[in-house]
Amino acid sequence: MIHNFTTDQQVNHRSIRQFKDQSLSAEQLTTIYQAARHTSTSMFLQQFSILHLTEPKKQAAVRKIAEQPYVGAEGDLFIFIADLYRNQQIRHQLGNDDGRLHTTDIFMQAVEDTILALQSALTAAESMGLGGVVLGSVKNDPDKLIQVLGLPKMTFPILGLQVGIPDQEPQLKPRLPLNQITFDNDYPRDFSINDLKDYDQLVTTYYDLRDANKRIDSFTNQINGPKLNNHKTSRDMLLQALHNQGLALE
């Protein structure tokens, strides 16, 4: 592997969930925004927006939805939004109809723009010595989140991002081996769970060292457990919430 500042920063990424009680400076915010703004965008549609939540009531409401105590607490909370409203308004104000804006294809392009922008923002934050954690949990109740944020139709919150000055130094979480996720030309169908024995041991050791009093099993046992077992959650309403926003209708 080639080592430089950027690659070392990326492969040593750790999710930070505990921050010092200090907000980002205006210069740090601008840097994060500029990095997100210049991210690759599908068809130059630029279908994302960022909400920076600074109102304590909104922070608390999102924290309640996410059910995680650090969300909207120390540091700065951002919600990254797939935004087709802006382009809808451009078309309307130029005398046109919505065209393909309600299709799943265009919505997926907005999702891609949004996720890429978030990753650029996080990379920029970490380059300044800040830490961050990506928050899928903000969508635990998508309809409620849309209401709390006051979002118009044709927008949808995709992910949250909490950024701040790290107040913890977590271990580097082991990822799947490269030979399990990278392939040349053809996708292999001869997968065997036995190929993950060494990785399972790494994951078990990681959790044992992190919290010896709370037994968390191997990677394969986690995949085979409650995370993916059949059960109803509020996130099962995501498709209906999307449709309520006028998105991915066809």
Rank of each mutant, 00 (worst) to 15 (best):
Q168Y: 08
K197L: 11
V148P: 04
Q171H: 05
P157L: 14
F191P: 06
S137K: 00
S192L: 11
P177G: 11
Q168I: 02
P157N: 08
D190K: 12
P166M: 04
D190H: 11
V133M: 11
L159W: 06
V134F: 00
L135F: 02
P157Q: 06
G132I: 12
V134A: 02
P174F: 04
V163Y: 08
N179E: 10
K197I: 10
L176P: 13
D200Q: 05
Q201E: 12
K144T: 15
V138P: 02
D143G: 06
L159P: 00
I181R: 02
M154H: 06
L159R: 03
V134N: 05
P166G: 13
D198Y: 09
V148C: 03
V148Y: 01
I165F: 10
P177C: 04
M154E: 07
F183V: 12
V133W: 15
L161A: 06
I165Q: 14
I193Y: 15
L151M: 06
N185V: 13
G150Q: 02
N140Y: 03
P188V: 11
K153M: 13
D167V: 08
S137C: 11
I193H: 09
V148Q: 06
P177K: 09
Q201K: 04
K197N: 03
P177T: 07
P142D: 06
V133E: 08
Y199S: 03
S192H: 15
K153C: 15
L151H: 07
L176D: 12
Y199D: 02
N185D: 11
I193V: 10
P142G: 03
L149M: 14
V148R: 05
Q180N: 09
P142N: 09
L149E: 07
F156T: 01
P142R: 11
S192T: 10
Y199V: 14
I181T: 00
P152W: 15
L159N: 12
